[in-house]
């Protein structure tokens, strides 16, 4: 079982994100970064499937600035075997579709049975890269996967997928792309020996030209969308505290406020 896990480094979920004064960008200096949580499910599943199959390799592929190396090393410390880091000015300003193009160009020549992506990266929140990557590679995909079972002949996988009000069970021929949803597994932590070993694992930096990408198809130039302004969302003014002598009275006053003032019921 050879797997590829697409991993994105993102700001910590607790991080405070502010816009620059002119709104043209966000300020990320001083922010702590982590592996996007859904990508951890991908790493864990790739490791579990490798253990089950009794062999194979787990390769991380990440596009991002120099700081992304930290997240990649964490993924290696969890147990991945090697990593590729797409690190080039040409990728700057890529939107989700352009990011998928860069990843596809890298992955095209690689050996794999399953490519795992997260359901979404928790910073840009596009949920686009998995399905787009599959299309660009000519592969089938399934999103929101909560269970993966590789067939004995290793030619297909059976997956459970979350749908509105239930689940679907699907069979997909390999190779394929799966996007990981919470519930798939419990990602392991990087152990101390794992962290030591990770330092020696291969981490290959890759430039756009090396994967035969025309600079005009990625980065800002290759993106069909551009963020023109960032603004902080409106904050709620402080809550109206519902008064009352007893819980019953508070309940009655709340119901009244929701009906008459908020017109919400």
């Amino acid at each position: 079982m050879n797997s590829i896990v697409c991993l994105k480094q993102v700001p910590d979920t607790e991080a405070q994100i502010l816009a620059t004064p002119d709104g043209s960008d966000v300020k990320l200096d001083g922010v702590k970064f982590i592996i996007s949580p859904y990508d951890e499910y991908g790493i864990e599943e790739a490791l579990l499937q490798k253990e089950k199959a009794g062999g194979g390799e787990v390769t991380l592929v990440s596009m991002g600035p120099a700081r992304a190396v930290e997240a990649i090393r964490t993924g290696l410390a969890m147990g991945a075997d090697k990593a590729v880091h797409l690190d080039d000015e040409a990728f700057n300003g890529s939107d989700a579709q352009a990011a998928a193009k860069a990843l596809a160009a890298q992955i095209k020549g690689m050996q794999y049975d399953i490519i795992y992506c997260g359901r979404q990266a928790i910073d840009d929140d596009q949920s686009q890269v998995g399905p787009a990557l599959a299309e660009l590679l000519g592969l089938p995909h399934t999103s929101l996967v909560t269970k993966v079972e590789v067939a004995a002949d290793k030619k297909s996988v059976k997956v459970n997928r979350q749908i509105v009000g239930g689940e679907e069970i699907l069979e997909i021929p390999l190779p394929c792309v799966l996007t990981c949803q919470k519930g798939l597994n419990e990602p392991r932590y990087a152990s101390l020996p794992g962290i030591m070993k990770a330092k020696k694992k291969p981490l290959q930096p890759v430039k756009a030209a090396e994967i035969g990408i025309d600079a005009g198809t990625v980065g800002a130039a290759g993106s069909g969308t551009r963020v023109v302004k960032f603004t902080a969302p409106p904050t709620r003014t402080s809550a109206k505290i519902i008064s009352g002598e007893s819980p019953e009275e508070k309940a009655a006053n709340l119901a009244k406020a929701l009906r008459e003032e908020a017109k919400a019921i």
Partner: peptide
């Protein structure tokens, strides 16, 4: 919304592609 609701982005589509 981006960054899990912490930021609103105004996004403009480029004219050379279907949006």
């Amino acid at each position: 919304y981006m960054y899990s609701g912490k930021m609103i982005a105004d996004v403009k589509f480029q004219a050379d592609k279907v949006a």
